[in-house]
Design a protein around this nucleic acid. Structure first.
Lengths: 209, 209
DNA sequence: GCCTATCCATAACC
DNA sequence: GGTTATGGATAGGC
């Protein structure tokens, strides 16, 4: 409903009326443009600059008016990045925040092999160490992916979803390039077989809230 | 830029007097408002909804016109999240390229490498292994905590809009609102400063040390 | 949600 | 970068 044909909504005069009025207008003012890729480099740059400014301004206004937190990331075609708002803070807070309470599952009686990743490193038998490391590495990657999803794409995250039943299934993951590779978009593969979020993590109940 | 007398710049005149007969001037039309926090809940919600829509539309236009990649993350005051564009990709890109420093590394120097957690396990020297493991464990907890907090404290709404994919891609609007989880807890609401524009960070083709 | 009057962002020019 | 005129976003009503 943005492109296509100009639907005049009974507001302004028909633009076809090019009028022989000899007004000493120096400019034609703002003209209607089609929303399609601008090919001329210079014109595109001007437009990008102006509209980006306008976009950020609107974002700022929205933020103030409604008390919302807004972050915008923009990559220009030439590869420059422009950001607005708390992007840094938002993203970095994910990682920086919260003093790390390095707890490795204090509770004595655990549920066997459940949540292997909660086991203290020291408790891992020597012969399983390598495997443990690999797994933890995968977990790390997996978490990273999840973080990225959380940061911008929440469509797959549901806390109260009936996930995590089978402890074995829960720790299935794919440590592949697809996991983390930044290629094209749309490669959002949901969370089939990925590590799901456990609603009742022990260290949560003693951290915050 | 706020305040000021109504400059009557009559431009577009309704060329018809045949409007559905209701009192001409039932509305005051758009009025100038001050950019300051809206206190009335309902009014704020309306404004948030309208302006968010407008913001996303502008973002979509900018994306198409200039071939830029744009992602927007919005946390409403009530904790709902709205996103625009291929944010996942952008955020991931951003995270991977930007100098984000996470310090749960015990005893680690400040001048160390960025993103130590991205190092392959194999590359960790033997003597640092234990420390690495400990840090990684802490990171895991930290990330997990964040994830759970985010997932548990926010309802999630996603919104997609046309974004530049390739010059020939069709333009299309797709709006999807969904409640995925419960959620209440409106912390981190009022933010003070908003505008935080990073002029230009050349990067993208260079890798961080 | 839809509608209208109004204000603002911005395309075209300097 | 600045100016002007106009298209389009949107505040206030329903």
């Amino acid at each position: 409903m943005e492109d296509g044909e100009p639907s005049s909504t009974s507001t302004c005069l028909p633009l076809t009326a090019q009028k022989p009025q000899q007004n000493p207008k120096t400019t034609k003012g703002r003209q209607k443009i089609e929303i399609k890729p601008i090919n001329e480099e210079s014109r595109r740059q001007v437009t990008f600059s102006k509209r980006r400014k306008g976009l950020f301004k609107k974002a700022a206004e929205l933020s103030v008016l409604c008390g919302a937190q807004i972050g915008i990331i923009t990559f220009s075609r030439r590869g420059r990045i422009f950001t607005f708002g708390n992007v840094d803070t938002l993203v970095e807070n994910y990682l920086r925040k919260a003093p790390v309470t390095l707890r490795s599952h204090p509770g004595g009686g655990d549920e066997g092999e459940d949540k292997w990743w909660e086991k203290a490193v020291e408790s891992v038998p020597e012969e399983e160490m390598e495997e443990y490391m690999t797994a933890l590495s995968g977990l790390r990657d997996n978490l990273w992916t999840r973080i990225c999803q959380m940061g911008g794409d929440h469509r797959t995250v549901q806390m109260d979803a009936p996930v995590f039943q089978n402890p074995t299934a829960a720790i299935e993951w794919k440590v592949t390039d697809e996991n983390l590779t930044v290629g094209n978009d749309q490669s959002q593969a949901g969370n089939g077989g990925y590590l799901d979020i456990h609603p009742e993590l022990p260290f949560l109940s003693q951290s915050r809230r």
